[in-house]
Write a protein that binds this DNA or RNA. Sequence first.
DNA 1: TTGCTTGCAAATGATTTGCACTGCT
DNA 2: AGCAGTGCAAATCATTTGCAAGCAA
Lengths: 156, 156
Amino acid sequence: MTAAANGAGAELHRLVGERLGERDQRYTASRRQIIDAFAVLARPVTLPELLTRAKGLAQSSAYRNLAVLEEAGAVRRLLHGADHAHYELAEDLTEHHHHLICVECGLIRDITLGSTLERSLDNALDGVASAEGFTPTHHAIDIYGRCADCVPGPPA
Amino acid sequence: MTAAANGAGAELHRLVGERLGERDQRYTASRRQIIDAFAVLARPVTLPELLTRAKGLAQSSAYRNLAVLEEAGAVRRLLHGADHAHYELAEDLTEHHHHLICVECGLIRDITLGSTLERSLDNALDGVASAEGFTPTHHAIDIYGRCADCVPGPPA
DNA sequence: TTGCTTGCAAATGATTTGCACTGCT
DNA sequence: AGCAGTGCAAATCATTTGCAAGCAA
């Protein structure tokens, strides 16, 4: 059993607990289950998917806990065309990344751009935003396409 | 009265009508009103906003028409955190652009990157996607921040 | 105890759909 | 006539919320 499969690293839990503590919220077993699921899956997941991992957790509690975790800055909610929203660990608990979204099956995976590209992109986006009177805080890039399982005619 | 305020350009209407025709759908007055509103506002709008422009159009009809127009490739639906989805003209009826989103008031505006940056970005994104086994079709960049009206401490 | 958490059931609200009617073609 | 389009009212469904009970400090 890998460290990840065993549960998220102690460091991750410490950070999440800290952020919850700052808001007088407890780091309960349910919330740990959720964070563990994110750490194990390592990709944005929907609430139904999350529930299959966090056995025994009520749907409403999952929604409530995700809201608390999002509020505390430990989780981020993503909205794409899918029926359900996707949730993932906050970027500062992982690393700055973007998303690859399969237009066929809805799968979402993380990707990172090279630091060089990311840096020049950052500057460019800041420039454009400022020119429009916006004070930029962050950005997101989504690449849509077909994942390996959904490309037409895979088998020989 | 400008050409835009007078109604979208004849060319735009011709293209939309053509796409609807290909799917055996009519380009009715209601649909024209919707397209006109997009052309005049020139930014992604929510359904409630659209209804204030398309006087007399029933909410359900607006939703249905937008679905038809999206299906025909004339309109694109955007999902962000807001209560309502945003709609805009399809990119190939306007031009490739990205979005500036105000985290405070939800306003969304279009921006374009320089063609040089856009081109190198395109290549880079294609490369990353392919390396992950994805066959990319398109991409979207969202810059979040505060619009001029929402930056803290504006008045002197 | 006090108050954060939780599960269950009921409520909410954007979006969708059933149906009967109007209006092109 | 025949069928796409429309308005109205009712239905859907992800997400949220009220409430009573459980649990940790």
